[in-house]
Every structure is written in C-alpha cells, then in structure tokens.
Write a protein that binds this DNA or RNA. Structure first.
Lengths: 203, 203
DNA sequence: ACCTGAACACCGTTCAAGT
DNA sequence: ACCTGAACACCGTTCAAGT
C-alpha cells in the first residue's frame, strides 16, 4: 500500500491525534501520533512540516473547542467565563503549556478570540492603554490555575515537623476540590479588583 | 581512565549542570548534562537514579537560590517579595515548570519555604482554613506571570484586520517592559484584594 | 500525491568490563 | 567506587523507492 486511493492522513487528523494524546497525558511526538493513526512516522511529513507545525495545528484546534460564547452580557461575567474555559484548557493539556506560550500567537482563530476579549474590555470602559495588560493578567491567571489544577492530589508532603504547614494540611481539602477552591478565591480576588479599578477610573 | 582518583561527578554537580542548561534555554537531559561535564552519559548513573532524580536535584538547588529573606516585615511586603522571587525563578526556567508542578513537593528545603510563608500568613491574621488557598493562589500567580515573562517579545501578531487588538498593539509596550507592567498590575490587584479581605475578616 | 523503509543523529537506560 | 563502551529501545527528520 504505497498510495491509498483515499488519503489516510490530513493536518486536521494529525492535530486531533496529538491533542488526544496530550489530553490523555501521553507523549504527543511524531512517532506517537503516527502510531495512533496506524501509519509510519515518515508519512506525516507529506502533510506537515514537522513537530513545530503539529503544535501550531494543535493550538488552533484547541482554541475552537474552548471558545467562550461571546453573547452579550456584563463584561465581568464574560471575563469569569473566559478564565474558567482557559483554565480548563491549560489543565487538560499541561505538557502543551510551555510550547504554547513559547511562540508568538498568529493563528487567526486565536487572534480573533483575543480581539473579542479586547473589544469587550474597551466597551466596558477600561482605559485603552490598560486593556492588553488586563488580558495578559487574565492569561497568566488561567495558566497558573490550570497548572495548579493539573498538580498531583497532594501538592505538599512534609517529611519532617513543620511550624504551621503540616497542621493546615491535616484540615485541608485535596485534589480537585482544593484546586477548585483555589481558583474560586483567585478569580474572585481578581474580579473584585478589576471592578474596583473600573469604578475608580470612571469617576 | 576507568576510575579517577578523585571523582569527576557528584549529585550537586549534576544538578547544577542541569540548572545551568535550563537557564540557558537549552535541553537538560542526561546526554546534554554529560556533555557539559565532559563525561559519558552512562557515568551519571553511578551518582543518580535517572532523569527523574536529576529533576528533583534541580528543584532543591533552585529553591535555595531564589529563597526569600524571612526578616520581619509587614506580611504584604513579604508576599510581594515572594511573588517577585518565584516569578523570576519560573521565568528563568520555563521548560522546568511542568516537571516541577507535576510532582508532590517533598524536598525539605522547599517544604521549609512554604512553611515559613504559611506561618507569616497565619500571624498576619488570615483564617487558618484559608491560608493554604492563599498560598496556592500566590503559586498560580508566580507561575503564570513567570511564563508570561518567558514569552516572546511579541505575544500576538495579527495577520488580518482586527476590531480592537491591532490598534491596541500599535500603542503598547513589548518584551520585558510589557511583562513587567503586567506583573505590576497583577500583583497590585492581588495584594489589594488580600488586604481588603483581611480587613473585612478582622471586623 | 501519498505511504513506505532505510538511514541518520539523537535520546534515556542497562550492564559487563576495566581500574 | 566510579568511568567507559557497547547495546537496546526510543525520538525527529530526510529521502529515494514504490504506486
């Protein structure tokens, strides 16, 4: 079977296979993707330039599945929904994070999503020279809390006596419950501050 | 030279070599570290159990170099300093981040650092059942802004027309100046909220 | 046009051989 | 005790060969 009548591969299939592997916490290299698709590694190069381009494909397909509904609503509800969705996105693919943030964003769909967020914030009344900063803060938030959610059930395990930490750990939640509580506090703190800042600026 | 009279390697040397590579943005695998130390890859296994243990060594040596001075001062100054130091730490070694957060923290020095932070927050008056959450929020912050600082000079490069984003980008800062401004806003928002929360709780 | 197989330079790890 | 060299199963990428 040198050339099948109907192609076995496509950029979309390759990107989706990589994403599936990443979501399952498995390695998502060229070889692993080829294995997943029942094909030889070298076959992928007929559709894709290499691992870098595969990562770009994955990024594009990611953002469409975690897209936030832009229906009209108060800006802070939109911001909260975006934080939630992006946190989930990063948490579902922690090993992808360094690759995603390491490259300039050019993908049209991803740019569009940021453009929408920028528009919402400008219309909410944030000063124009501050909107990009607010967006970057939101991104840092989503990434940080996403990786927090992807952490092990026990973040800390002291082997010796501690002054305070051990006692607090005995009473504390663990796993996703802990991570969710952290995210709730974090996003509440952030939104409170943003609202206060907007109110102050509007005086 | 089968066995040198004085050993060429040690766990400390191996960890430091890995950290140096990571800081330089280069790969820090077994082979790369061996190359750096002028030795064969298999030699490392006389001192270390494998890449996982090397990562643990790197973690331990990291925290000591980014340790926050625990001298008495207002809790919020301490929190700000910790955010600053940890952000720098993550930014200096972005590729290490997924490895660091993927494992439960057991290293005594790292536990000690968190214990200290917990003690400061308890003494500041935060409710005991909230302190670990605040710490996790700080961690998420430091990681998110650290990776933001490690991002390329241009985070976004739109190829088509945008409603808002392109216009804002034309006026905006880039590179470290942008990342620093983001961090300033983020940590100000967080600290404002934490102070407000503490004041409310103290009523 | 598109899949294969062989080849290359990498990677982490094991282990017998040397001192 | 500690470094080496050969070996193994991996990895990403190239390219000539096949249809």
């Amino acid at each position: 079977m040198a050339r099948p009548s109907t192609p076995l591969l496509s950029p979309a299939l390759i990107g989706d296979a990589g994403l599936e592997l990443a979501r399952a916490g498995r390695a998502f290299g060229v070889n692993a993707i080829a294995r997943e698709l029942g094909v030889r590694p070298s076959s992928l190069y007929n559709h894709v330039d290499g691992l870098d381009e595969i990562v770009e494909l994955m990024r594009g397909r990611l953002i469409t599945s975690y897209r936030v509904d832009p229906s009209p609503r108060p800006w802070d509800a939109y911001v909260r929904a975006a934080l939630h969705a992006h946190r989930r996105m990063y948490a579902d693919h922690p090993t992808l994070v360094p690759l995603l943030i390491g490259k300039t964003i050019t993908h049209p769909l991803v740019i569009e999503a940021y453009d929408e967020l920028a528009t919402v914030l400008v219309e909410a009344g944030f000063p124009e020279d501050e909107v990009l900063t607010v967006i970057a803060v939101m991104d840092a938030f989503a990434i940080g809390f996403g990786l927090d959610l992807a952490s092990p059930d026990d973040v800390w395990r002291p082997s010796e006596d501690t002054r305070t930490l051990g006692r607090l750990l005995d009473e504390a939640e663990r796993g996703d419950a802990r991570a969710d509580r952290t995210f709730e506090l974090g996003s509440t703190l952030l939104l409170d501050s943003l609202r206060a800042r907007l109110a102050r600026g509007a005086d």
